[in-house]
C-alpha cells in the first residue's frame, strides 16, 4: 500500500477567498473583547491593590474565577447557559466578545497590579512631598510609568486572546477556524486549509507584535 499525499498549493490558494471573511470576525471578537477587558483589568487591577481590604476581596474573587476556568467553558456557559437564566438567546458574537473580555480582564488585572506595584515607593513619596494629592501622584507619576512597563505583558495577552477566539468556532461564530471548517466540509482539503488558517493567525499576531515593538521603542524615551 502506497500513500503519496502531496501538499496541493493550488487548493491552498483556492481556499483564501473562502477564509478571508473570517478575519473581520476574528479581529472584531478579539479586539472588541480586549478593549473591554482592558478597562475591566484596570478596574479590578487597581481594586486588587486598594489599601481597603474589603475592596480587594471582590477583585481577588474575580481574578481567581476567570483565570482559573477554561475560556472554552466560559464561552459555552455564556452562550448555552446564560440564556436559561435570562430567558432569551444571546447571539454568538456577543458571547464571544464577552468571553474574551472577562477572560482577558482577569489576566490584565494582574498585569495592571504588577505594573503599578513595580514603581519604586520613592516616586510616590516624591510626588506627595511636593504637595500632590494621592490621586494626582497616581495619575501624573505612577500610572504613566506603570503603563510603559505593562506594554509587553499586555501584548502577550493580546496575542493569547486572538488565538483564543479560534475556540469560538464551537458556538458557530463565523471566525477564521469556522470558515475553514465550512470550506473543508465540501472540499476535503484539511491539510491545505488549516495551514492557510494558521498562516492568517500568524499574520495577525505578527502585525500586533511589530506594532507593540514600535510603541515600546517610542515609550522608552528617557527611561
Amino acid at each position: 500500500m502506497e500513500v503519496t499525499f502531496q501538499f496541493d498549493w493550488a487548493a491552498a490558494f483556492r481556499s483564501i477567498p473562502h477564509l478571508l471573511p473570517g478575519i473581520p470576525w476574528t479581529l472584531l471578537i478579539s479586539f472588541g473583547g480586549l478593549a473591554i477587558g482592558f478597562f475591566i483589568g484596570i478596574f479590578f487591577g487597581l481594586l486588587r491593590i486598594s489599601p481597603i481590604r474589603w475592596l480587594r476581596w471582590p477583585a481577588i474573587l474575580y481574578i481567581e474565577v476567570f483565570r482559573g476556568t477554561p475560556i472554552l467553558v466560559q464561552v459555552l456557559f455564556i452562550f448555552y447557559g446564560l440564556p436559561q437564566l435570562l430567558g432569551g438567546p444571546i447571539n454568538a458574537l456577543t458571547a464571544g466578545i464577552a468571553a474574551i473580555a472577562i477572560n482577558s480582564g482577569a489576566y490584565i488585572s494582574e498585569v495592571v497590579r504588577g505594573g503599578v506595584q513595580s514603581i519604586e515607593r520613592g516616586q510616590r513619596e516624591a510626588g506627595l512631598s511636593l504637595g500632590l494629592s494621592r490621586s494626582q501622584a497616581f495619575r501624573y507619576i505612577i500610572w504613566p510609568q506603570a503603563f510603559r512597563r505593562m506594554i509587553p505583558p499586555l501584548g502577550n495577552q493580546g496575542i493569547i486572546s486572538i488565538k483564543d477566539t479560534s475556540l469560538f468556532s464551537v458556538i458557530g461564530v463565523g471566525e477564521l477556524v469556522r470558515q475553514g471548517q465550512i470550506y473543508i466540509a465540501t472540499t476535503f482539503t484539511a491539510l491545505e486549509v488549516y495551514f492557510m488558517v494558521a498562516l492568517m493567525y500568524l499574520a495577525i499576531t505578527w502585525s500586533l507584535s511589530i506594532a507593540l515593538r514600535l510603541l515600546e521603542r517610542k515609550g522608552l524615551v528617557g527611561q
Binding site: E120, G122, Q123, A126, G127, L130, Q145, G222, Q223
Partner: peptide, 15 residues
Amino acid sequence: TEVGMVFQQFNLFPH
C-alpha cells in the same frame, strides 16, 4: 505644599 524634601535616591520622575 509648604515643605520641600530632597531624598537620598533623588526620586526624580524618569518619564
